[in-house]
Simulated scan of single mutants.
Amino acid sequence: MALHILPRPLQYLEAVARTGSIQAASRSLGIAASAIDRQIIALEDSCQTPLFERHARGMRLTAAGETALQMARRWRADEDRLETELRNMRGEQHGTVRLAAMDSMANTILPALVDDFALRYPRINLSIDIMTPREAGRELDNGSIDLAIAFNLPNDRNRHVLWSSPLPFGCVVGRGHPLWGREGVALTEAAQHPIAAQSRVLPSREYLDQRYGWLFDPVEPALVTNSLQLLKQILAQGRLMALSSRLDMLAELETGVLSFVPLTDKRLRPQSISVVVDARRMMPRAARLVGEALATTVPQRLAALDAAVSDQADPPLR
């Protein structure tokens, strides 16, 4: 049985913020609209400030309301952690684990993780949100997630790294591209080919802009997109190349649709990929199991990809 220790006014605030109106929250919760309205007004009176802007088309959180919502989410996350720890003390493998992950893992690492846990730990539930590294760091600090797997998370004394690894950049191309099958290429040579680039809102492009912005100046990329799926489809056509990591394109590299050509420049700094938790909070056993699974699965998949590429490059002697 759930603990339900989150105060009712905060439950109602969450529902109104999620649905956009008192009436919609009423339908969602099965609670009378008048009861929800009274609780919201009482909460605003206690806070001595409006938590919502009220419009003809609905309600929108004020800055104070956003702060209250963050507190509600932290409270709910702590409620789940307490329930999980109590179950652990009773010897039950049970709980909900909140994970922040990158979009590039949505068709590779994450489906395998969900399938593995459904088989091995059927009483552990996963709540996975796709976030940017900046969002993941913020939500980890807020306590609304249990752990994050993200690119280039900065060092922070409040974070504990369960696992981390460098993630080098390379040129990703499709069949028919001049770089297909190359064992390596210098960055200056790679820059001579038309580029398909991720948009600046995505972590890999942000990292490249900070260190190798000259790649995109003065020549604009032939394609800029915030859709990793579109980018991979375009690369498969064999005309454009992208600078990316193997993890971004893992499924297509595993199937041979795309090829990864390492950059040979010795001074290039790779990205990093890390599994991180908040060092200030007790880590539930279920979350630790998820962290351990990620720390095992990601390097295994990358190592298997390297082995497959090596086998193709060096066919067995007859």
Rank of each mutant, 00 (worst) to 15 (best):
V298N: 10
T296D: 14
G143A: 08
W75D: 04
Q233P: 00
S165Y: 02
P221D: 02
S310P: 01
A17N: 08
L3I: 15
Y121R: 04
P166K: 06
P168G: 09
N155D: 15
S199T: 00
D314M: 14
P154H: 09
M105N: 12
S227M: 13
D115I: 04
L99F: 07
I128A: 01
P7N: 00
R159H: 11
N226L: 02
T296K: 13
L51K: 13
S310N: 12
L230P: 01
G170A: 01
K266V: 11
N158L: 13
L253A: 08
G291L: 04
R38P: 03
M102K: 00
N125R: 15
I234T: 15
S165F: 02
T297N: 13
S310Y: 09
T297W: 12
G184E: 06
S227H: 12
A24L: 11
H160F: 07
P203G: 02
G58H: 09
V261Q: 11
I5A: 10
Q39H: 13
S272I: 05
P221C: 01
F52Y: 01
R157P: 05
H55D: 07
F151D: 04
E14G: 08
D141F: 03
H4T: 10
L179C: 14
P178T: 04
Q312V: 10
A35F: 11
A33G: 14
V172A: 01
D278N: 15
N152T: 05
E83A: 14
R246A: 14
R301W: 11
S144Q: 03
L240C: 04
E79P: 06
P221L: 00
N158V: 06
A35P: 02
T67Q: 14
Y212P: 05
T264K: 03
L187S: 04
S28A: 15
A196I: 02
D156C: 11
A186N: 14
F216V: 00
H177T: 07
R211T: 06
L302W: 02
A68M: 14
E206G: 10
F260K: 03
G170H: 00
S272N: 03
A304I: 05
R269F: 05
A33S: 15
H160L: 09
M131H: 15
D115R: 11
A222V: 03
R205D: 09
V224C: 14
A287G: 10
A197F: 07
T264L: 09
A32I: 00
G170S: 02
I130G: 01
P133E: 12
N152G: 06
G20I: 11
L253G: 06
R138L: 14
R138F: 11
L3S: 09
L294C: 02
M102I: 05
H94I: 13
D217L: 13
F216L: 02
A148K: 03
Q229S: 13
R74L: 12
R74Q: 13
A35G: 04
H177C: 11
T108P: 03
M102S: 15
G91M: 03
A186W: 03
V276W: 00
Q300L: 09
Y12S: 00
G170Q: 01
I130V: 15
L153K: 04
R239K: 14
R123A: 13
L86S: 05
A303V: 07
A2P: 15
G143N: 07
A118F: 07
A196V: 02
